[in-house]
Design a protein around this nucleic acid. Structure first.
Lengths: 257, 257
DNA sequence: ATAATTTGTAACTGGTTTGTAACAGCCATG
DNA sequence: CATGGCTGTTACAAACCAGTTACAAATTAT
C-alpha cells in the first residue's frame, strides 16, 4: 500500500458541458515537470488523466482501472518502459505511446518491436501528441466496443430494480420503468462503484461535476432526494441510500446484485 | 481506365513456406525508386505488396481489394496524400501510414489530424518502417476479424424494413422502398454495429466524419431526424432510434434482425 | 456549366434537467 | 429537552438540450 501520495488524479476542469471523450489516460514519467506538463495537456482536452512516477505505481493503477492509452517514458527508475510495454502488450489491447528524451533511432525501433503503438520524442509538440493520443484512443475504444458487443447485456441489480446502463433506465420487477436523468444515473453509478463506503458530498461533487463543494451547497442533497424518489424509497425501510450524518451518503451493501 | 501498365503487382518470391502474414499492403509513391525500395522491403517480409504511382491508381486498387495497410506519400501528383487520407478514413478501418520527404513538423501534425495512423519521414530506416507496418497490420486485422463476425448478412433487418446495404436502400415489408443518403446510411450502420449501446454525438461524429463535435453543433441531430423520418418513426411508439437525454442516441435492441 | 441532391448552419421552440433558496424537521450534544 | 447545525423537501428560475424548419453551402450528377 504505497503510492497514493504521489499518484496524481485529476479530472477535467472547466468546459464541463463539452466532455469530448470519456477516455482514461495514464501518464508514466519519473520527472515531475514532464508528468505535469503532459497531464495538463490532456486535461485541457477533457480526458480523465491519471499519472504515476514509476512502473510499480503504473501497474497498480492499471490493475484497478481500464485505461485506454498509456504514455510511457522509456527510461524509468526500476523496471523500464520497454519491459512494461512488453508485459502490457501480452494480454491487453491498451494503446501504448512511448516517450523518450533521445532522438535515438534504435530506441525507437526497439520500442516499436516491443509492441508500442506510437513513439514520441522529447521535446514534444502538444498538438502532435494530442493528435496521436486521439487517434489511438479512437482505435482502442473501437476495438473494445467490438469485443464487448454482446457481452455485458446483463443489467445491474439495485434494490428491486434492474439498471439498464445504456438507457439510464430503471426496470422494475413489476414491469415498471423509470427514466433517470444523467445526473441521477451518475450518482447511482458512483455509489454503486463504492458500494458500502460512505462518500462525502465533496467526493460526490468531484466525481459528478468535477468541481468543489462548499458547506452551503445543497445540490447533492437535492440530487440524492430525487434519486431516492425514483427508487421509491419510503424513507422508512427498503432504504438503499443511507445518510451518514455529518459525513455523506452510502449505498447499502444489500442493494447490490 | 488507365494505369494497369504502371501498377506493379508482386507477391513474395521463394521463401513461401515462411509466409509471416497474409496481409495486403499498398504502396503509393510517384517516385519509381522509392516505390520499388518500399515494395522490396515488404516482399522480403512475406507481405502481398501492391503499388500505385498516384491517387487515382490507388483508389482503383483500393476499390478492388481489401488492403490492410496503405503507405502513402504526402506529395503526390494530382490528388495529394492528405486528401486521400481523409477520404479513406471516413468509411474504412484501413491502416494508413504517411510517408514524406520533409521533416516538417506541421506536415506530420496535419497528417495525424487527418486520421493517419503513422507517420514516417524519408530517409527511412527499413527496420523501423517494418516494425510500424507490422504493428499496424496486427491492429487492423484484429479489428477486421471482430467486425466481420456477424456483419454482411446482405440484407439486414431493422424495424419493419430490410436494409439493402449495397444500394443503401430500405425495403419495406409492404413493398415500399426508401433511398437513404450516404450520411443516413452510415449513421444507421454505426448504430446497427453498436446496437443497444448509447453513442454520444461525439462518437457518432468521429465515426461518420472523423471530426470533432462541439456543443453548438446540431448536425447529428438533424441527421437523426432525417433518418427517423425515413424509417417512418411516428415519434410515438415503433421507436427504433432512442434519444438518451444529455448523452446521445441508441438503436433499440428490438430493432435488430 | 448547370441542375439536383445532399449536407451543414442558424434560428426558434418546447421541454427537461439542474441549481438555488427557503423553510421545516431531524439529530447530537450539553 | 433545548439549541445549533445538518438534512429533507418543495417550488421556482436559470441553464441546458433536443426537435424542427428553412436556407445556404457543398457535392454530385447531367
Amino acid at each position: 500500500m504505497v503510492g497514493s501520495a504521489v499518484v496524481v488524479v485529476k479530472w477535467k476542469g472547466l468546459k464541463s458541458a463539452m466532455l469530448t471523450s470519456d477516455a482514461k489516460i495514464l501518464v508514466v514519467d519519473d520527472s515531475d515537470v514532464i508528468r505535469q506538463t503532459l497531464v495538463s495537456y490532456f486535461e485541457e482536452e477533457g480526458y480523465a488523466v491519471f499519472s504515476a512516477a514509476n512502473a510499480e505505481q503504473a501497474e497498480e493503477l492499471l490493475a484497478r482501472e481500464p485505461f485506454d492509452v498509456v504514455l510511457l517514458d522509456i527510461r524509468l527508475p526500476g523496471k523500464d518502459g520497454l519491459t512494461l510495454t512488453r508485459e502490457l502488450r501480452t494480454g491487453s489491447e491498451i494503446g501504448i505511446i512511448l516517450v523518450t528524451g533521445r532522438q535515438d533511432e534504435l530506441d525507437r525501433i526497439i520500442g516499436l518491436e516491443c509492441g508500442a503503438d506510437e513513439y514520441v520524442a522529447k521535446p514534444f509538440n502538444p498538438r502532435e501528441i494530442l493528435a496521436r493520443v486521439k487517434n489511438l484512443v479512437r482505435r482502442v475504444q473501437r476495438l473494445r466496443s467490438l469485443e464487448t458487443r454482446d457481452a455485458e447485456t446483463e443489467s445491474i441489480r439495485v434494490g428491486g430494480w434492474n439498471l439498464d446502463a445504456h438507457r439510464r433506465l430503471l426496470l422494475g420487477d413489476d414491469g415498471e420503468t423509470v427514466q433517470l436523468t444523467e445526473g441521477e444515473y451518475q450518482l447511482l453509478q458512483v455509489l454503486l462503484q463504492n458500494i458500502g463506503k460512505t462518500m462525502s458530498r465533496d467526493q460526490l461533487m468531484d466525481r459528478l461535476k468535477h468541481r468543489a463543494w462548499d458547506a452551503t451547497d445543497r445540490s447533492i442533497d437535492v440530487l440524492v432526494a430525487r434519486l431516492r424518489k425514483k427508487l421509491r424509497e419510503d424513507a422508512s425501510h427498503t432504504q438503499q441510500i443511507v445518510t451518514v450524518h455529518g459525513v455523506g451518503y452510502l449505498l447499502s451493501p444489500a442493494s447490490g446484485r
